[in-house]
């Protein structure tokens, strides 16, 4: 049994007087201790909603979450608000995208670290402060003792994200969800933060769910990758097969749209045409079909199922053949 088993997770947003919108549509994946699982996709594919659903942080009204999220055998979706509060921060940690807005601007960093220690580990303020300085030091913040009394706006972007990671890992949660943790940072800091996450996850045996649209992050960090499109997993594979041999046209397109160091000079990037449609896309045929260079007639009529193979699971009627070069731009 895996540490976290997400089965057929479905999140439907419904407001009075509007059509229901399925943001996450039957997503399943497992995460083992010490393993890093990536959820990859472009904006609106449902990756952040998936993470909020696992954490139980979706607003209490206006949405319906079905399926199951088993954490050490307990279905988190059946827990009440109080039970979830006791688990959040202790068993489940989360790091958000924007480190400045994720910290409370009016209280010092130290208090924000000790808060979670006092809450979940029952430490006194004094003991928690000592522990907090230790934690900040461990995530690579220089002079942690001084930083404890400083306010978020006095820290640099990279340091803020380090502080947030320290807070999220303060109680040694067994699962950490990182929702685009490097998007708001510049490239050199990104690399440092990723290295830090990798190290901490390895040392503490924490399971990590990495949510990103950045395939570079995936390549550097993830053991297993789930590529999401329109709220469904379209391709699921270990890191190497996915990058070496992407089979779903969407994955293939994502990789083709990244500049390569070994590409020829003047070689054009190949974008994926169009953008994610925000209607309910999977009812009749494949949601990616309108943008897909490989689309067949069947793609627009029959909804493809996720078919498990030896190295990967794939949801496609007409996958890209192994070794196909980047698709050429099709005239519209």
């Amino acid at each position: 049994m895996a540490l976290l088993e997400v089965r057929d997770l479905r999140v439907v947003f419904q407001r009075r007087g509007t059509e229901p919108f399925t943001a996450v549509d039957g997503v399943s994946f497992d995460v083992d201790p010490g393993q890093t699982v990536g959820l990859v996709g472009e904006s609106g594919c449902g990756k952040s909603v998936t993470s909020l659903a696992i954490m139980g942080l979706l607003p209490s009204r206006g949405n319906k979450v079905t399926g199951s999220v088993r954490f050490e055998g307990t279905d988190l979706l059946t827990l009440n608000d109080k039970e979830m509060r006791n688990r959040r921060g202790r068993d489940l940690g989360m790091v958000f995208q924007d480190p400045l807005s994720s910290l409370n601007p009016v209280i010092p960093i130290g208090l924000q670290v000790t808060e979670v220690l006092e809450r979940h580990r029952g430490m006194s303020r004094k003991a928690a402060m000592v522990e907090a300085a230790d934690l900040l030091g461990r995530v690579g913040i220089p002079d942690p003792q001084r930083r404890l009394s400083e306010y978020p706006h006095q820290l640099s972007g990279g340091m803020r994200q380090r502080a947030l990671i320290a807070i999220a890992l303060a109680c040694r949660p067994r699962l950490l969800i990182a929702d685009e943790p490097t998007t708001a940072l510049d490239v050199t800091i990104q690399a440092q933060i990723l290295a830090l996450l990798k190290e901490l996850v390895r040392d503490m045996g924490t399971a990590l769910i990495m949510i990103t649209h950045d395939l570079g992050v995936v390549a550097g960090l993830c053991d297993e990758v789930n590529v999401l499109y329109g709220g469904r997993v379209v391709e699921k594979a270990a890191r190497y097969p996915l990058f070496a041999d992407p089979r779903h046209p969407y994955t293939h397109g994502l990789l083709a749209s990244i500049p390569r160091l070994d590409g020829a000079r003047g070689e054009k990037l190949v974008p994926i045409k169009g953008s994610v449609a925000d209607n309910i896309p999977w009812d009749h045929g494949c949601a990616f079909a309108p943008r897909c260079p490989n689309a067949l007639a069947v793609c627009r009529e029959v909804t493809p199922e996720l078919e498990a193979g030896d190295v990967r699971s794939l949801r496609c009627h007409n996958p890209v053949l192994p070794g196909t070069p980047a698709a050429q731009e099709v005239p519209a």
Binding site: M84, R85, R88, G89, S102, P105, E115, H120, L164
Partner: peptide, 15 residues
Amino acid sequence: DHVLAATALGVRRRT
């Protein structure tokens, strides 16, 4: 965001 982040840490409603 920071209230969401605090909630994600399981901080009590009162806090």
